[in-house]
Design a protein around this nucleic acid. Structure first.
Lengths: 211, 211
DNA sequence: TGTAATAACGAACGAACGTTAGTTTTAAAT
DNA sequence: ATTTAAAACTAACGTTCGTTCGTTATTACA
């Protein structure tokens, strides 16, 4: 059978498993969710899960692959970045902060961010991903950005890596604050607040380093 | 019996259970450690655990109570803080950073910090503790500190709460970086590095806000 | 030395877990 | 209408889990 839902069109079962697993993993953590619970929520027997995924771990892997792909699709192309810097650091920071928030800003991505924040501790694959893609890579990008700003004599000639950490560590802090400590709060409201906080932080930093 | 170790003096069993549970919880997380595993490491049968603790959860509770007590014992008395500020912001920041590091700096506390960082996601009691004692309370203290510095005209009259976040969010970031992402690295070495980073951050901040 | 409390033990319980096997139903393709 | 493959089902396997029970051994104290 391709779709056992009589009449009403509906998502394929594999997608339902994906969505519900994500929902449950994000809420309770991978280990705290049983295959039986996923199956119950989907509306099938637990053994049917294995017609779509090799095992429970494969569901998590598929979610992470999707997340990594989504992240790789976002982000500012390099050419645009260079052009944007020319317009001055203020414009660049505002755009940068908005883009950072935008990556997080869909309901589905919210759940994956939360899942990442939970499973980073338990899952080496996710932890390595976090370190590389969510910390080291952005830091490098911002280091280059500050380097360019220094070369263009927009800001004082300080250590660009220090500046990258001064700027970006605040974003990690906001991530930690929401996804770890305040996840019960309204997502949209907090994101608006976080964007404002990030903008204020950038303004503060810029005031300290501009020429 | 009080101590079944023939001849050689040794820790009471209850303490052994405490220490080994902490070790295992910090390494693998609460749920990933079984009562059987604890018992095996202690060198007794799993049923004997229940002669010392009501259940598995009670072991975690005891560890957290100990941790909270230890934290409450540390920290700078208020009188000393006031006196320290008088000596100028540079001295205060250096001392503040050193004390922040000092709280983390024993091998036993290292494990508890790691445990907190793992279980914050799963355990509401720990999460509430983190929010209150490790974020909100320090932020309030630093807000008051900056307020005092402003009143003494040591720094520019900026929003003291903003300054508290600018300063302390970096500490949270360092916590996150080590205990979540880099826990395999050498503790002592990282703490020295973190102290240096925190000092640099304070210096950077101070440069931006001093009068 | 006898007694009582403490803490060890072996064995088992009931529940939950991930997963597999074999079978039947469904729906599309011929 | 028949065939075929996908996807549902029922049933169960083997483990592991936290915990409890009843019993035995040890130790401190009278």
């Amino acid at each position: 059978m391709k779709n056992q839902n009589k009449g009403n069109p509906s998502k394929p079962t594999k997608e339902k498993i994906f969505d519900i697993s994500l929902e449950l993993f994000a809420a309770k953590g991978f280990n705290a969710v049983s295959v039986r619970e996923i199956a119950r929520e989907v509306g099938i027997r637990e053994s049917s899960i294995y017609n779509h995924y090799k095992n429970k771990e494969a569901i998590l892997d598929t979610i992470m692959d999707y997340f990594i792909y989504q992240l790789s699709q976002s982000g500012l192309p390099k050419d645009d970045a260079e052009a944007l810097i020319e317009q001055g650091p203020e414009v660049f920071f505002e755009t940068g902060a908005k883009m950072y928030i935008k990556q997080i800003n869909t309901p589905q991505m919210e759940k994956i961010w939360r899942l990442v924040s939970i499973e980073t501790y338990h899952n080496k694959k996710i932890r390595d991903f976090f370190k590389k893609e969510l910390l080291e890579e952005p830091i490098n990008v911002w280091e280059n950005t500050f380097q360019m700003m220094i070369e263009k004599k927009m800001i004082k000639p300080l250590n660009p890596r220090t500046l990258a950490y001064e700027y970006f560590s605040f974003a990690i802090f906001l991530f930690f604050e929401y996804f770890v400590l305040e996840y019960d709060k309204d997502f949209k409201t907090y994101m608006d607040l976080a964007q404002e906080k990030m903008a204020n932080h950038a303004e503060f930093l810029l005031e300290a380093i501009k020429m």
